[in-house]
Design a protein around this nucleic acid. Structure first.
Length: 854
RNA sequence: GCCCGGGUGGCGAAACUGGCAGACGCACGGGACUUAAAAUCCCGAGCCCCGCAAGGGGCGUGACGGUUCGACUCCGUCCCCGGGCACCA
């Protein structure tokens, strides 16, 4: 055995002192071992342990992972590993959101069939994930494009048809010319397609399948209250999206009725102001407008113009900025509350999609109506006043500043309702309207039913058949899955590609056996991701989407991690689907996710990474250069997980260096053959050893606390760096032999365990170096001893008049008296208060002393 | 316009309940090792001023004001950046 330097003690130092940290052989070695042990990350089917379901949002298999994925999965993986070490039965699955348009686009571009393209991408990305060392149970892997999965989409769809939750209707839909398909409301952003930010969405009339999510609107809203583990921001976004608003509908009778009806139903949240209504306003697309045009053709062009203006405003995504224009139709309608005759107008600021597409205009008490009425010189009538809590100061009614819209008001000029408060009047007026049959209290939602038909190929076929004799007929459950055919020409545009596949299109009616056509639209891919996490609990099941008993065990998901961009789309559909499944009797839980974490974006050079900006960093490059551990470590170290992360390659290098330091320390100081290596740590330690022991216990406390509460892994890793720095600083003491071998062993073992959730490859290797067998993952998490973590002596600041003037050493549990004494004994303090009067001394034990002098 | 985040050294950040601002890392400077370099190890460092130096003083968490013995932290007014919502009756 060759000894190194002359002062190297053979008992304390190994020979591989200068060995360089090369992550690649280590990561390859462990990758191969883990690959050969499929049970390693498998959840126990039957277990006495507490369960923990940690889930990261499943990726779309676009071809390669990006840094956002690496960050997302590094957070989830650290948590999964930690929970394993805490002794939980952990489910940590992964899958693929494998249907969707990019596969068709790629097919057009490269002449590769969508299936082959998608499966190749999955293969590639799965290899990347394995290379990064994520602890997924691949036995539960799910790809939504496989018939084994999507048949259950079809099954759910049939159940929803049965329950009246899926229905077909003709309606105005959002059409993206680029995607050549329909979009859900949720997929339209500022009048443009969510995937094509430059492409304006067109409005088309189409027959579509809809899911009745509005039936659950109230519950979706109400249950947000119970989601304590969700970010407030996401809940607010969902609340806004659902947009519940309580109000009333009131029928205004038309003087000259047309074929579209004799009345105009308006929606208002302020029925209490109805005596102040001075006109009725219709959306340009309101059906009654057709009748009014027929009666008065002069307004036709103007209405068309208003409609165009409205569309332009929507496209611009800046609706509020567009000027209000209106046209008087010449018609009149009667206010049922006071029999008053009101002019009917068409206005460009009234939306057909919301409420009833008609309003009563109350210029004195509504900002928009006020703006419009001022412009057109329409009468304003004040019918509510601020409520006086005290006696009026003067006589005569005080005119409020218009528009006056406060809820805390009192009615005037409103007949029998005079002097009622706004809430009382709302209730009383709605009641009267209902009694007399011209209105009622209603609730309106912004949320619309979910249009799920897509005129695309690469998606789940909708399991319905059209028969000339029997009409729309569901495919019987026994005939599922309706297989998506291969070899479909998707190069032609216009219409669903499946409609050009006769073998698919032509079928027989399940009812009468006669010739029939299949539905050729496919489902929105958000259907796939609405319930995939249930499938993970029972991915191989061929008789049901999953075994209810397994779902009951694993659900709700304990921790879901993903990007905030899914705050409404995916996360609201998932909540809806869970409630439907509950009502189908499949599950007991009403919410899928207990705790939700939304991580920040990965930024580089001040912008989100994107091909356009050319600032993309490839995970493969990072792994090739620094190894998976360093890349993952950096993605957690550079910023707290909820904040945006600025990617700096030199930062990765810093993490790589840190891992190198840990590697070298352990390879140098591991002495598993030493007779005392496994002995207990002595109760009495010298000062140098004690410093290390204290730091160790403080570090365990810190990391444990970070996992259990804040998830500020950047500070966890910083604490581990501090521990490692202290170990290096103690090398002199180690050489002298003043750090007992059992403590050395404990220091290294614990450091490796604490780092294991963040850098699993190297820690597995070092665990072995330390002479340990067995999976690190299944070792119990280190326990800290508060007595050992406690400082004996601490330095505290002494301030004079709030300014730092000195620092003193006191015992950690020094009381006020002791701290005060020590402070006044200090030379610098003495000098600073010389000749001054002491007004007051503030002492916070263990923190500071402040002496106030004059 | 409304609702959330955020604004701290050259940079990423830390300070968890009002108690030493800048932990940890990057970049930088110096030293050790080396024929040399890389790698590694050690030391330094918010800014400004005084001093040859040891050291001393002042300023400092977007701006201004307030509360307090004491404010990155609490309150008020405002500015900037990011995100969400926005004619929703």
């Amino acid at each position: 055995m060759a000894l190194m330097g002359s002062d190297d003690n053979p008992v304390t130092a190994n020979e591989r002192v200068d060995e360089r940290y090369d992550p690649h052989p280590i990561e390859q070695k462990w990758s191969a071992r883990w690959e050969g042990d499929p049970a390693l990350y498998a959840a126990e089917r039957v277990s006495t342990k507490k369960k923990y379901y940690v889930l990261e949002m499943l990726p779309y298999p676009s071809g390669a992972l990006h840094m956002g994925h690496v960050r997302n999965y590094s957070i989830g993986d650290a948590l999964a590993r930690y929970m394993w070490m805490r002794g939980y039965n952990v489910l940590h699955p992964m899958g693929w959101d494998a249907f969707g348009l990019p596969a068709e686009n790629a097919a057009l571009k490269n002449n590769t069939p969508p299936r082959a393209w998608t499966l190749a991408n999955i293969g590639n990305m799965k290899a990347q994930m394995k290379r990064l060392g994520f602890s997924y149970d691949w036995a539960t892997e799910t790809a939504t494009c496989l018939p084994e999965y999507y048949r259950w989409n079809q099954w759910f769809f049939l159940k929803m048809v049965e329950k009246g939750l899926a229905y077909r209707k003709k309606s105005k839909v959002n059409w993206c010319p680029e995607c050549a398909t329909v979009l859900a409301n949720e997929q339209v952003v500022d009048g443009c397609c969510w995937r094509h930010e430059e492409t304006k969405v067109e409005i088309r009339d189409l027959e579509q399948w809809f899911l009745r999510i509005t039936q659950y609107a109230d519950e979706l809203l109400r249950d947000l209250e119970s989601l304590d583990g969700w970010p407030e921001k996401v809940k607010t976004m969902q609340r806004n999206w659902i947009g519940r608003s309580e109000g009333a509908q009131v029928d205004f009778t038309l003087e000259s009725p047309g074929p579209h009806g004799a009345k105009i139903t308006v929606f208002t949240t302020r029925i209490d102001t109805i005596f102040g209504a001075t006109s009725v306003q219709l959306a340009p697309e309101h059906p009654v407008v057709q009748d009014l045009i027929a009666a008065n053709p002069e307004i036709k062009d103007k209405v068309a113009e208003l409609q165009l203006e409205q569309q332009a405003a929507k496209d611009a995504g800046d609706a509020g900025a567009v000027e209000k224009h209106c046209v008087f139709t010449g018609a009149y309608a009667t206010n049922p509350f006071n029999g008053e005759r009101l002019p009917v107008w068409v206005a460009n600021y009234i939306l057909m999609e919301y409420g009833t597409g008609a309003i009563m205009s109350v210029p004195a008490h509504d900002e928009r109506d006020y703006e419009f009425a001022k412009k057109y010189g329409i009468e304003m009538r004040v019918v509510i006043l601020p409520r006086r809590t005290e006696e009026p100061t003067g006589d005569g009614e005080q005119e409020p500043v218009l528009p006056f819209t406060h809820e805390d008001s009192m009615l005037i000029n409103s007949g029998e309702f005079n002097e009622m408060s706004t809430p009382d009047a709302k209730a009383a007026m709605a009641r009267l309207a209902e009694q007399k049959g011209f209105g009622k209290a209603t609730v309106t939602y912004r949320l619309k039913d979910w249009g799920v038909s897509r005129q695309r190929y690469w998606g789940t076929p909708i399991p319905m058949v059209y028969c000339e004799k029997d009409g729309i007929v569901p495919v019987p459950e026994s005939q599922l899955p309706v297989i998506l055919p291969d070899n479909v020409d998707i190069t032609q545009t216009g219409g669903s590609p499946l409609s050009r596949v006769p073998a698919f299109l032509n079928t027989t009616c399940p009812k009468c056996g006669g010739p029939a056509r299949r539905e050729t639209d496919t489902m929105d891919t958000f259907v796939d991701s609405s319930w995939y996490f249930y499938r993970y609990t029972d991915a191989q099941n061929t008789n049901a989407p999953f075994d209810p008993a397994l779902a009951a065990y694993w659900f709700p998901i304990d921790q879901y991690i993903g990007g905030v961009e899914h705050a409404i789309l995916h996360l609201i559909y998932s909540r809806f689907w869970t409630k439907v499944m509950r009502d189908l009797g499949l599950i007991k839980n009403s919410e899928p996710v207990e705790r939700l974490f939304t991580q920040g974006m990965v930024i580089k050079d001040g912008a989100k990474m994107s091909k356009n900006k050319g600032n993309v960093v490839s995970p493969d490059d990072m792994v090739a250069q620094y190894g998976a551990d360093a890349a993952r470590l950096y993605s957690l170290f550079a910023a707290p997980p909820d904040r945006d992360l600025d990617w700096q390659e030199q930062g990765v290098e810093g993490c790589f260096r840190f891992l190198g330091r840990v590697y070298r320390f352990v390879t140098k100081h591991a002495k598993p053959q030493h007779p005392e290596w496994r002995a207990g740590v002595p109760a009495e330690l010298g000062p140098e050893a004690r410093v290390l022991q204290r730091k160790l216990h403080q570090t365990i406390a810190k990391i444990t606390h970070d996992f259990d509460s804040r998830w500020h892994f950047n500070t966890s890793i910083a604490a581990l760096m501090e521990l490692s720095n202290d170990l290096y600083a103690a090398e002199g003491a180690i050489r002298k032999g003043t750090v007992p071998v059992p403590l050395m062993a404990q220091l290294q073992r614990t450091l490796v365990q604490l780092l294991a959730p963040f850098a699993p490859y190297l820690m597995a290797e070092l665990w072995e170096t330390l002479g340990e067998r067995g999976t690190l993952l299944k070792q119990p998490w280190p326990v800290f001893n508060p007595a050992l973590a406690k400082e004996d002596e601490i330095e505290i600041p002494v301030q004079i008049n709030g300014k730092l003037r000195s620092r003193i050493m006191v015992s950690a549990d020094a009381n006020e008296e002791a701290a005060k004494e020590a402070a006044f004994r200090d030379e610098r303090v003495k000098a600073a208060i010389e000749g001054k009067t002491i007004v007051k001394v503030i002492i916070v034990p263990g923190k500071m002393v402040n002496i106030v002098v004059k």
